[in-house]
């Protein structure tokens, strides 16, 4: 990467005996919507907080826009963060919350008012400027927190689980809203999430973390189609993983497997009985108990309208895939 906005070099952070971040190297490009994805305790939030200056790494360094941030306190860094709890100031109304950062910069009052209004318009909360956070719904609070983080037009916006506190329906709408804002403002977003679906649908690029390390970095497509390890293959989407040789595995996505009543003419085949069928409308998921590969998951797109599904539980079926259908893994 020629001119990354963030460059992380060998950052590690320990709490007593626990290593939260264990030597991470990472570059994030300008204008990306980058996601840090991983389960709880994988170190993703610690890494995000280290970028913000809220944690001090034990070793390694972080450069933002080419400048070494070692020893630079949080309040002097050109980044803003949206907290998972939103951390709205309960004693200030919405406008005061949003304008807080501008006032700290000593901006003149009219400018603060104008930019607060713009930020509130951006998140569609123009009418609620004089409300206290306690008078808002969860979704409204989330947007106040976003407006507060956006209002200073930071080079880098850090979002810690921005959608986790929202209910499912709101979450999907807000996801697209975030992407729209990121594109509209041309800012760099770094989003921490534990939800792989969220990361895949939003991010231009993402890093999967496990036990304090980055396991793989890439576009959603790369990570899905070419996982580097069994962990990634399993964490992102669904995969049938089986050992092909000692120390070698094959990760096979359910939709890459052909399902038929007759033995197919593919390079690899397996046969077994349908153990379960899950009809999901656009597709059907089959769990097939094979003799050679154990239980395998297969999905078929329901392209044709039929009176009932193609196969039923108990039917004997054939599975087929080619050499290139799956990803060969050695870790």
């Amino acid at each position: 990467m020629t001119d990354p906005i963030v460059r992380i070099e060998g950052v590690a952070k320990r709490y007593g005996a626990v290593t939260a971040v264990d030597g991470v190297d990472l570059e994030i490009a300008r204008g990306e919507l980058f996601a840090l994805l991983g389960g709880s305790g994988c170190g993703k939030t610690t890494l995000l907080r280290a970028i913000a200056g809220l944690e001090t790494p034990d070793s390694g360094r972080i450069l933002i826009d080419g400048q070494d941030m070692t020893g630079v306190p949080a309040h002097k860094r050109p980044v803003n963060m949206m907290f998972q709890s939103y951390a709205l100031f309960p004693h200030m109304d919405v406008a005061a919350n949003v304008g807080y950062g501008l006032r700290r910069e000593g901006r003149p009052k009219p400018e603060v008012a104008r930019r607060v209004a713009e930020a509130l318009a951006l998140v569609k909360l123009e009418a609620l400027g004089d409300r206290k956070p306690s008078q808002l719904s969860g979704g409204q609070r989330q947007r106040v927190a976003l407006a507060r983080a956006l209002v200073k037009q930071p080079k880098l916006l850090l979002l810690d689980e921005p959608l986790a506190a929202l209910d499912r329906k709101l979450r999907e709408g807000t996801r697209f809203e975030l992407v729209r804002l990121q594109e509209q403002l041309g800012l760099t977003f770094v989003v921490v999430t534990h939800d792989q679906e969220e990361a895949m649908s939003m991010a231009t690029r993402l890093a999967v973390m496990n036990a304090g390390r980055i396991v793989q970095t890439g576009t959603p497509h790369e990570l899905y189609e070419h996982p580097a390890t069994r962990f990634v293959a399993d964490f992102i989407g669904v995969a049938n993983i089986f050992e092909t040789a000692p120390g070698r595995w094959l990760a096979l996505r359910p939709e890459k497997i052909a399902l038929s009543a007759e033995r197919p003419h593919t390079a690899h085949t397996a046969t077994g009985k349908v153990a379960d069928v899950a009809y999901e409308g656009d597709r059907s998921l089959y769990r097939v108990a094979t003799h050679s590969h154990g239980t395998m998951l297969v999905s078929t797109a329901n392209v044709h309208r039929t009176r009932d599904g193609a196969f039923r539980r108990g039917d004997t079926v054939w599975l087929g895939w080619s050499d290139t259908s799956g990803q060969v893994l050695d870790a």
Binding site: A52, G53, L54, P73, A74, H75, K76, V79, N80, M81, F83, S85, A87, L88, F89, P90, H91, Y100, G101, R104, E105, R148, K152
Partner: peptide, 26 residues
């Protein structure tokens, strides 16, 4: 909530300013 102080710092408040604008009023 200590995250309020972190938020204040993140938004550019020096420790004294964070104390005066967040801790003290709360």
């Amino acid at each position: 909530d200590t995250s309020l102080l972190e938020a204040a710092a993140d938004l550019g408040a020096r420790p004294v300013a964070a104390f005066l604008t967040v801790t003290l009023p709360l």
